[in-house]
């Protein structure tokens, strides 16, 4: 028994188990979120949403997944085969890496890396690369326009996102997510840094290509944007990545601003998931409230408003910390 515990406690086993659990969670999360999105959409438009398959339509996402699995993967003649196949894989793999460092609870954490947030941000910038690959490799003008928009947008919004997180890093003096959560035992950082929170939240919605910043996949103009030419499971991978990215940006927001797993009465991971899904709900709420911004407006918001504001916030934070 002691030997088994020792074997399970080794770093590699912990990492392997963590990644398998993360993979399972990614799929489960996507199923829950598609159901949730359709329910939220329905109720905000005074409709019911899915209800026929299973109680409250809970099995509807499984039915959808089965449909996607059964679909033929159509590959257009003119695509660049290597890039076309690479893109959905490249968009899906990095999102799992983020789960290694996200602290679900004080003990529910695969590996507490001391540069945790850098790992997440570094890997999440793969997303824009794979979107570009998918859009370019598809050899379709709509896909290419979507990909180009996505690159411009992600480059613009990564800066305020990083700057907003940097002010928290300055306050807590650590890049490790667990240390940042532990530092919020008394007071959540959202009350100390409300501007940073708002900047981060707006930028993260843009990073995940959600409405009102969903220009890369603008269905009314670009068919489906960068994943126009993908079908079946290849499309499903893009889909999974989008919903997982929603979860990741929300969980970073919770970790940095809303006290992570801290909370009374209930175990930490319940608090963590409740806060994350609340933020995901807010993102969905935005989607069914705001119309899409124009492209020049999109870039103006970032370069003219969010980035100066984030720099100002950083300066004030640094100044106050020095005092």
């Amino acid at each position: 028994m002691g030997g088994l515990v020792k074997l399970l406690d080794t770093e590699m086993v912990r990492l392997a188990v963590g990644l398998v659990l993360a993979l399972g969670f990614v799929v489960f999360n996507a199923l829950i979120l598609t159901w949730m999105e359709r329910k939220v959409a329905g109720h905000m438009q005074l409709r019911i949403g899915p209800k026929e398959v299973g109680p409250f339509g809970l099995i509807q996402p499984l039915a959808d997944a089965t449909k996607l699995l059964g679909k033929e993967i159509l590959i257009p003649k003119a695509v660049d085969k290597t890039l076309y196949y690479l893109a959905p894989i490249l968009i899906f793999i990095p999102v799992i890496v983020a789960f290694v460092v996200i602290p679900f609870d004080s003990y529910l954490l695969v590996k507490d890396i001391n540069v945790g947030i850098v790992v997440i941000l570094a890997f999440s910038s793969f997303t824009v690369l794979s979107i570009l690959l998918g859009g370019w490799g598809s050899n379709n003008k709509y896909a290419l326009i979507g990909a180009i928009r996505s690159v411009a947008q992600n480059v613009a919004y990564e800066i305020p996102l990083l700057l907003a997180l940097l002010s928290i890093v300055m306050m807590s003096g650590s890049l490790s997510l667990k240390t940042i959560v532990e530092a919020q035992k008394g007071l959540w950082y959202v009350f100390v840094q409300p501007v940073a929170f708002i900047i981060y939240f707006i930028a993260s919605i843009a990073e995940t290509n959600r409405t009102p910043f969903d220009l890369p996949e603008a269905e009314s103009e670009l068919v489906a944007g960068y994943h126009t030419e993908y079908s079946g499971m290849m499309f499903a991978l893009f889909f999974l990545a989008e919903y997982t990215n929603m979860f990741i940006v929300s969980s970073i927001a919770v970790t940095f601003f809303l006290g992570g797993y801290n909370g009374p009465f209930f175990p930490g991971f319940i608090w963590f998931l409740a806060k994350v899904y609340f933020l995901v709900f807010v993102i969905m709420w935005f989607r069914w409230t705001y119309p899409r911004v124009r492209f020049d407006q999109l870039l103006n918001i970032s370069w003219k408003a969010l980035i100066p504001l984030a720099f100002l916030n950083l300066l004030v934070t640094g100044g106050l910390l020095k005092l």
């Binding site: 409709r47 935005f286 409230t289």
Partner: peptide
Amino acid sequence: SLLAGLSVTIKSFFMPVVTSQ
């Protein structure tokens, strides 16, 4: 105006649905 928009949608979120089965 952004907040006003949010309040409109959240109100309709909690309103009873009009769809009849």
